[in-house]
Design a protein around this nucleic acid. Structure first.
Lengths: 224, 224
DNA sequence: TCAAAAAGTCAAAAATTGGTCAATTTGCAG
DNA sequence: CTGCAAATTGACCAATTTTTGACTTTTTGA
């Protein structure tokens, strides 16, 4: 069966070029021109998504997170600029790779193929992060200590995931808020205090250990 | 140590709002109202520039290019309109990000902070090791003598960092105050005396050595 | 030697930060 | 619509840091 690739980009020129090229390479190509279309296109269950993070109406990272809630296939960002921080943000949002514009078709197809291969190999193996006997399944968004489920809520899971992915680094509340809620989110980073408390309670309850350390005046850190 | 931010915009209302807000956030703000002033303001070596690309007299992109010839700090465009082409042009001219008007102050400061962090990280801030086994980790803001932690508070760490970075130079209290609290901070440089005392106690306690020397009538000096 | 200026000490006030709780709002499945 | 869980908020307290001001000691130069 041909692999299905979803192209989410608002530049008509580019999407047409890409879809015809990918079809030539034996893939099935689908195009979405905005966030709305992208979400509804997920019903075709694409095997890979090419996502422009600079589409109007919606922050690409936010969109990526939404996509991640529904599918586990590789997501490759198409983007003009790319810095270390972008990569980190992108990975946190659930992205798998970056392709910076302008790119050659050759490069693009090479990367697409690589990710599809990798994905094939790791099918049935959800992304799991573990730390001291704590098992976090990013695909299912579950968290267990041995047999014990942690029952983290969505926000709680987001925060745990962010801290675990960046274990041993210190983040103040503002930065955690930015990372989880998004850069242009309005609101108060004071909520973090409450979420951290809830998370700590659940962690303590299930594991008896302390995972989140407070560094006074600096923020919180996930102890690995 | 306070970051210096140059605001280049001809709208007085906006620049005043921005500069007062940025100052509240702990930055030093400088304002330039036209291209000429912007160029000459580069002498303060800002850590980040907010640039209105619609100033009269001069094309903002041209100005950006000129700035880029002199400094390497992040340049964020303030702009009303924004298209894909604008972004490409802006990036080619040496810009790092766009903020479209109208924007919330929260979003602005979040982006400013993000870019400053990114910039900081890309410098790969090295651990500074002072003489005689005192190890200061700038990323984690920790300070150890062998295994012994110094437990410096934030202010204390700022002062130590400043003095160490400029080891063997003499600074009077006023200069240290300006360097750590920021140029436009108001207050008494007498606090320095107390902080120096606390730092000295902690250093003595942990290391048994004297690191901060008093040069009578002149100020303090970090002995390397 | 003595007075003035500079630096050091100390304790307590003020400000900031972190933790907890209860109350309210939001979002969503039934 | 209703009801429930999740998410958020605001108030409050405790821990910790930061600042202040009075006071002492040291240094300098007349």
């Amino acid at each position: 069966m041909a692999y299905k690739i979803l192209i989410a980009d608002d530049e008509k020129m580019l999407t047409e070029l890409l879809s015809s090229h990918l079809q030539k390479c034996g893939y099935e190509a689908f195009v979405a021109e905005n966030a709305q279309q992208t979400i509804s296109m997920l019903n075709v269950y694409p095997d890979l998504i090419l996502l422009d993070i600079n589409m109007p109406e919606m922050d690409g990272l936010e969109l990526c997170k939404m996509i991640r809630q529904n599918v586990v296939c590789p997501i490759l960002f198409l983007t003009a600029r790319i810095t270390e921080q972008d990569k980190i943000n992108g990975l946190q949002a659930g992205g798998d790779d970056y392709i910076t514009k302008p790119f050659s078709l050759k490069e693009l197809t090479a990367r697409v193929a690589a990710h599809l291969r990798r994905d094939e190999r790791s099918k049935c193996t959800p992304k799991i992060v573990s730390s001291q006997g704590l098992i976090v399944n990013l695909a299912e968004r579950t968290c267990f200590y041995g047999e014990k489920p942690l029952n983290l809520s969505n926000r709680e899971f987001d925060i745990v995931e962010f801290l675990m992915r960046n274990a041993n680094q210190i983040f103040d509340r503002e930065r955690i808020y930015e990372a989880v809620w998004g850069l242009n989110a309005e609101g108060d980073s004071g909520v973090i205090k409450e979420h951290i408390r809830k998370i700590r309670n659940k962690l303590k309850e299930a594991t008896g250990r302390e995972y989140i350390e407070t560094v006074w005046g600096m923020g919180y850190r996930w102890k690995k």
